[in-house]
Design a protein around this nucleic acid. Structure first.
Lengths: 190, 190
DNA sequence: GTCTATATTCCGATAGAC
DNA sequence: GTCTATCGGAATATAGAC
C-alpha cells in the first residue's frame, strides 16, 4: 500500500492551505511547499500538476469542511448565539495562525485566479453565507436572536465584520478584532 | 523644465495604485506598468528603484489623500449621516473599478510586505479609523447618529462591513454590497 | 536626467531516472 | 508510482547608452 504518497499529498495540501491563508495565492511557490517537506519542487508537480489543480483542491476541501460544519450546526442543540460564537471563534483563531479567512484571501486575488476555480469560490462563499443566514433566521424565529435586517443581509454584515476584522488585526492588533466580536454578539442579544 | 519625467513618474504611480487595488502587491510587475506606458520595464526602475520604493510612495499618497478627506470632513457642514454615505460611496465606486480598498489589499499581503512599509500601513489604517470614529462621535453628540458601541468600535464595524463588502462583491455580486451599505446607514439612524 | 540592453534569480512546468 | 534534473520564461534589478 502506497502510504507514503497519500501522506505526501495530504501534507502538500495542508501546507498549501496554510500558505494560501497566510500570504495569498500569488505569494507562495511550489518551492515554499517542497522545502518544508525536504523534497524538490518538481515532486509537488507530481501530486498537483499545476498550481490551479492545487488551488482547486484547497477550495474543494473548504467546501467539504463547511458542509460538515453546516450539518453539525443544523443538528446541534446549542443556543443560536453560541453557534454564532463558534463561528466567531474560528476567525479569532486565524489571527493566531497569522492567517486570514479563505474567502478573504481568494477575494483579494480574485482577478488573478484561474477561471475554473472562481466558480468553486462562488459556491463556497454562498455556502458559508447561507449557513450563517440559516443560523440567524432560526435563532430569530426561536426568539433567541434579534436583528432588523433580512437574514442574508445580517449574515453579510457579520461575515464582513469577521473577515475584514482578522485582516485589520494584522495591522492594528488583535484587540480591535475582539472589540468587533464582542460588539456583534451583543447586537444579536437585543 | 523636465515635464516628461514628472508625468511619467505620476503615471507610473497612478497605474501602480490601480494595480495594487486590483490584483495586490505580489501579482503585478514592473512589466505590467511599463507596457501601459509603452516603455521598457527598466524605465520604471529609474523612477522607482525597487518595488518597495513604489509601494511606499503609493501608501504615502493614500495617507495624504485621507488627510485631505479628514480635513474636508472636519470642516464640512454636511449632516453626519451624509459624511458616512460619502465614505460608503467611495467603497461602492471601487467595485466598478474592479478594485478593493487599499487597506484590505495590503492587509491580505501584509506578511509579504517590506518592513518599512508596514509602519506606514499602520499609520494609514489608524488615520482612516480615527477619521471615521470622529465623524461618528460628533454625529452622536449632535443627536444625528445612534449607536451603542464606543466610537472606535463602531468605526471598526462599519469599516469592516465596507472593506470586506467590496471583496465579497467580487464573488457574489454588487447587490450584496448594496444590501450592506443600506443596512449600515439604516442602523445609524435609530 | 531618462531610458534600454542585459544580468541574475526564481517561477511554474516537463521529461525522464529510479 | 514517486521523485529529480532540467527547461523556458518572467520576475526584480543593475550597468551603461544617450
Amino acid at each position: 500500500m502506497p502510504a507514503k504518497s497519500t501522506d505526501t499529498k495530504q501534507e502538500i495540501l495542508s501546507i498549501a492551505r496554510d500558505l494560501l491563508k497566510k500570504v495569498g495565492y500569488n505569494a507562495f511557490s511550489y518551492s515554499d511547499i517542497s522545502k518544508q517537506l525536504n523534497i524538490k519542487n518538481a515532486a509537488v508537480h507530481y501530486h498537483y500538476p499545476t498550481k490551479e489543480d492545487l488551488l482547486a483542491d484547497i477550495v474543494n476541501t473548504y467546501i467539504e469542511d463547511y458542509k460538515q460544519l453546516e450539518s453539525g450546526l443544523a443538528h446541534s442543540t446549542l443556543p443560536a448565539i453560541d453557534k454564532v460564537s463558534v463561528f466567531a471563534d474560528r476567525y479569532a483563531h486565524l489571527i493566531d495562525l497569522q492567517s486570514i479567512c479563505i474567502i478573504g484571501s481568494v477575494a483579494s486575488d480574485f482577478y488573478t485566479l484561474p477561471e475554473a476555480v472562481k466558480d468553486r469560490v462562488i459556491l463556497l462563499t454562498n455556502l458559508v453565507l447561507g449557513m450563517v443566514a440559516n443560523v440567524l433566521e432560526k435563532g430569530r424565529t426561536n426568539g433567541e436572536l434579534f436583528f432588523a435586517e433580512d437574514a442574508r443581509t445580517k449574515a453579510l454584515l457579520i461575515m464582513t465584520n469577521l473577515a475584514a476584522g482578522v485582516q485589520l488585526a494584522r495591522i492594528t492588533g488583535k484587540k480591535d478584532f475582539e472589540s468587533i466580536r464582542t460588539a456583534l454578539i451583543a447586537q444579536l442579544k437585543k
